[in-house]
Design a protein around this nucleic acid. Structure first.
Lengths: 111, 111
DNA sequence: TGGCTATTTGGCTAACCTGCCAAATATGAA
DNA sequence: TTCATATTTGGCAGGTTAGCCAAATAGCCA
């Protein structure tokens, strides 16, 4: 019997894709990487990223709604932290892919 | 000293984000998952996905350019296969995130 | 060659994303 | 309360993406 993309599978994939999409932006990857070292407030991240604070705030909101990070308000500042350390595993795999591509590229050039 | 998003870091993050972006679509996640069971030709995937073949072909092209899959032409058919099995690790982490969110959701509702 | 099937590419529109500014909101201090 | 700082939200313009159809390309076989 043929596998097919049924409604339930589709719903699961939609949810998974939403999480992937939240990670699919250089600034948000930077934020995740930085948060893996410890919590940071919005203004710290804003300074590091070098974009408008409203832009950074929106990136953080995207990571938050999918559950990758959590926020905690202390005084006038909001501190964000990673909720799932496993997100860092992504970097390893992605780097593996990129290195594999680089190797292949080199082969083609040397061929 | 403050960490900052410098030019080199930015370039690395851009490359990583390109790979993540290729994965950030339900249809493409489905394809990756299906290819983890073995190679498939475009027409097989098209039937499973249930979209236009040109749409599926474009999704496959996106996965190919970032190095996640490779293609091999045999006769009139093109067979695609996974290039990095580690991509499957993504699913585990994403599911962990989603389950964590679901748990939190339940807590809030029961509170 | 011509016809058939499999796949890719071009082109189009609708929908979505990003980043900035401005305005709103929240907290703490004077 | 008023001011100042930190953050979020609304809104807009420019750029990107998705999916369909039609057309082009490639391989196989008669």
């Amino acid at each position: 019997m043929k596998r097919r993309l049924d409604k339930a599978t589709r719903a699961r994939l939609d949810a998974q894709a939403r999480v992937m999409k939240a990670l699919a932006h250089p600034t948000r990857l930077f934020i995740v990487e930085e948060l893996s070292r410890g919590e940071r407030c919005v203004c710290e991240l804003t300074e590091m990223v070098g974009a408008d604070i409203s832009t950074v705030s929106k990136h953080l909101a995207q990571l938050r709604v999918v559950g990758l990070v959590q926020d905690e308000k202390r005084g006038t500042q909001v501190y964000y932290s990673l909720r799932c350390a496993c997100a860092l595993g992504f970097f390893n795999c992605i780097d593996e892919v990129l290195q594999s591509v680089a190797r292949q590229h080199a082969e083609v050039i040397n061929a």
